[in-house]
């Protein structure tokens, strides 16, 4: 993989293989990153970009290309965690809705929905599990592989997240009827 003037010219070339593997993963990776990062599209783009760079740097370590999706997804999740841990970025709420959903005004209205607000208040680990479950349609075992957590932990996080979301929705409903 070393050399000046490198060209990916065959399916065996690492660059071509990488391109072929990463392309189908981009949309889901971007959506999951957007969700974990609380709806911040710019942060999500940077997170997926960082993840792809890391994946390329370590592409030679990937022994089984069939596992690329889980491997890449795990790097994306870690990239999102890194950004949340190391950046002092503000939450996407209220006045940010225009930036978040400019193409679809209806979504800005929906953002005020109690469920969405409750999702944005979940911890990143819980959001990662919810995002992989409901955006990427991953099984619990797949989520475990993509987050580095154990399946039992994933089950626990999903349980706690859904309970918190339901509690938030119920509380909101009580406020409305009061």
């Amino acid at each position: 993989m070393t050399g000046e003037g490198y060209r990916p010219t065959s399916p065996d070339d690492p660059a071509a293989s990488f391109a072929r593997l990463v392309e189908p993963e981009l949309d889901v990776a971007y959506r999951v990153a957007t969700f974990i990062l609380g709806g911040d599209l710019l942060e999500a783009e940077d997170a997926v970009n960082d993840a792809a760079l890391r994946a390329w740097q370590h592409f030679a370590d990937l022994r089984d290309p069939a596992r690329f999706d889980a491997w890449f997804s795990r790097i994306v999740v870690n990239s999102c965690r890194d950004r949340l841990r190391q950046h002092r970025v503000r939450p996407i709420t209220g006045s940010d809705t225009e930036r978040l959903h400019t193409p679809d005004p209806a979504s800005a209205i929906a953002l005020s929905d109690a469920l969405e607000r409750a999702m944005l208040a979940l911890s990143p680990d819980h959001r990662a599990v919810v995002g992989l479950r409901y955006l990427a349609d991953c099984s619990l075992d797949e989520i475990a592989k993509r987050t580095g957590a154990r399946t039992g932990t994933v089950k626990s996080r999903l349980h706690f997240a859904l309970r918190a979301l339901r509690a938030a929705v119920d509380a909101d409903a009580r406020e409305v009827t009061r």
């Binding site: 981009l26 949309d27 990776a29 971007y30 959506r31 999951v32 957007t34 969700f35 609380g38 709806g39 599209l41 999500a44 783009e45 997926v48 959903h101 193409p103 679809d104 979504s107 929906a110 953002l111 929905d113 469920l115 969405e116 999702m119 944005l120 919810v130 995002g131 409901y134 955006l135 859904l162 979301l165």
Partner: peptide
């Protein structure tokens, strides 16, 4: 929950 998650992350990779 699924619908709300998809509203938050509605856009494909740009």
């Amino acid at each position: 929950v699924r619908a709300a998650a998809r509203r938050i992350a509605a856009q494909p990779a740009p």
